[in-house]
Lab assay of single mutants.
Amino acid sequence: MVIEDPKTNKLIEVEKLPDGTYKVTIYDKKTGEKKTITMSKKDLEKLLKAL
């Protein structure tokens, strides 16, 4: 799943891993910076609600 946040000009890509956690990659379209973090479903839901 890919989500675009027009306010921050970032793309957020979410991928479910076999162990039940989620790999979240955040791309900054302005700088080209890429950050990848792994989080639980509960933390991911908090992140998505904040957008």
Rank of each mutant, 00 (worst) to 15 (best):
M1P: 08
M1W: 02
M1N: 13
M1D: 15
M1G: 15
V2P: 15
V2T: 02
V2C: 10
V2F: 00
I3C: 12
I3W: 01
I3E: 15
I3M: 01
E4D: 10
E4C: 08
E4N: 03
D5A: 01
D5E: 03
P6T: 09
P6C: 12
P6R: 01
P6L: 12
P6D: 04
P6A: 07
P6Q: 06
K7L: 14
K7F: 13
T8M: 03
T8G: 12
T8W: 06
T8E: 10
T8P: 01
T8F: 04
N9V: 04
N9P: 01
N9R: 02
N9K: 02
N9L: 08
N9T: 03
K10W: 13
K10Y: 15
K10H: 07
K10P: 02
K10M: 15
L11W: 04
L11E: 02
I12K: 01
I12Q: 01
I12D: 01
I12H: 03
E13P: 00
E13Q: 11
E13S: 08
V14S: 03
V14D: 00
V14I: 08
V14F: 07
E15W: 15
K16R: 12
K16G: 15
K16W: 11
K16C: 14
K16H: 13
K16V: 13
K16T: 15
K16I: 13
L17R: 05
L17E: 05
L17S: 07
P18R: 02
P18F: 09
P18K: 07
P18T: 13
P18L: 11
P18M: 09
D19E: 11
D19I: 06
D19W: 11
D19Y: 08
G20T: 07
G20R: 06
G20W: 09
G20F: 09
G20Y: 07
G20H: 08
G20Q: 14
G20I: 01
G20V: 02
G20N: 13
G20M: 13
T21Q: 04
T21N: 05
T21I: 07
T21L: 11
T21Y: 05
T21W: 12
T21M: 08
Y22R: 01
Y22P: 00
Y22H: 02
Y22N: 03
Y22G: 02
K23L: 03
K23R: 15
K23S: 05
K23P: 00
V24H: 00
T25W: 11
T25H: 05
T25N: 04
T25F: 14
T25S: 07
T25D: 02
T25A: 09
I26E: 08
I26R: 03
I26C: 11
I26P: 00
I26F: 11
I26M: 06
I26L: 05
I26S: 10
Y27A: 03
Y27G: 02
Y27N: 02
Y27H: 04
Y27R: 01
D28E: 04
D28K: 02
D28P: 00
D28L: 02
K29T: 12
K29Y: 07
K29R: 04
K29C: 09
K29G: 03
K30Y: 09
K30C: 05
K30S: 10
K30N: 09
T31C: 04
T31E: 08
T31A: 05
T31R: 04
G32N: 09
G32L: 09
G32K: 11
G32V: 03
G32E: 09
E33N: 07
E33K: 05
K34H: 09
K34Q: 10
K34Y: 13
K34T: 12
K34E: 05
K34R: 09
K35D: 13
K35L: 10
K35T: 12
T36Y: 10
T36R: 12
T36D: 05
T36F: 14
I37P: 00
I37S: 11
I37F: 15
I37N: 10
T38S: 10
T38C: 06
T38N: 04
T38R: 05
T38K: 06
M39I: 04
M39N: 01
M39C: 06
M39V: 03
S40W: 12
S40L: 09
S40T: 13
S40G: 10
S40I: 06
S40F: 10
S40A: 06
S40Q: 06
K41C: 14
K41R: 14
K41P: 04
K41E: 09
K41H: 15
K41F: 12
K42F: 15
K42S: 12
K42E: 14
K42Y: 15
K42M: 12
D43E: 10
D43G: 08
D43K: 11
D43M: 13
D43A: 07
D43Y: 09
D43N: 08
L44I: 07
L44F: 09
L44H: 01
L44Q: 00
L44G: 10
E45A: 11
E45K: 04
E45D: 09
E45Q: 07
E45W: 14
E45P: 00
E45M: 13
K46G: 12
K46V: 14
K46P: 04
L47I: 09
L47V: 07
L47G: 00
L47K: 00
L47E: 02
L47C: 03
L47F: 10
L48T: 01
L48A: 00
L48E: 02
L48C: 05
L48Q: 01
L48F: 09
L48S: 00
K49N: 15
K49R: 12
K49Y: 15
A50N: 06
A50P: 04
A50R: 10
L51C: 04
L51N: 03
L51G: 04
L51H: 04
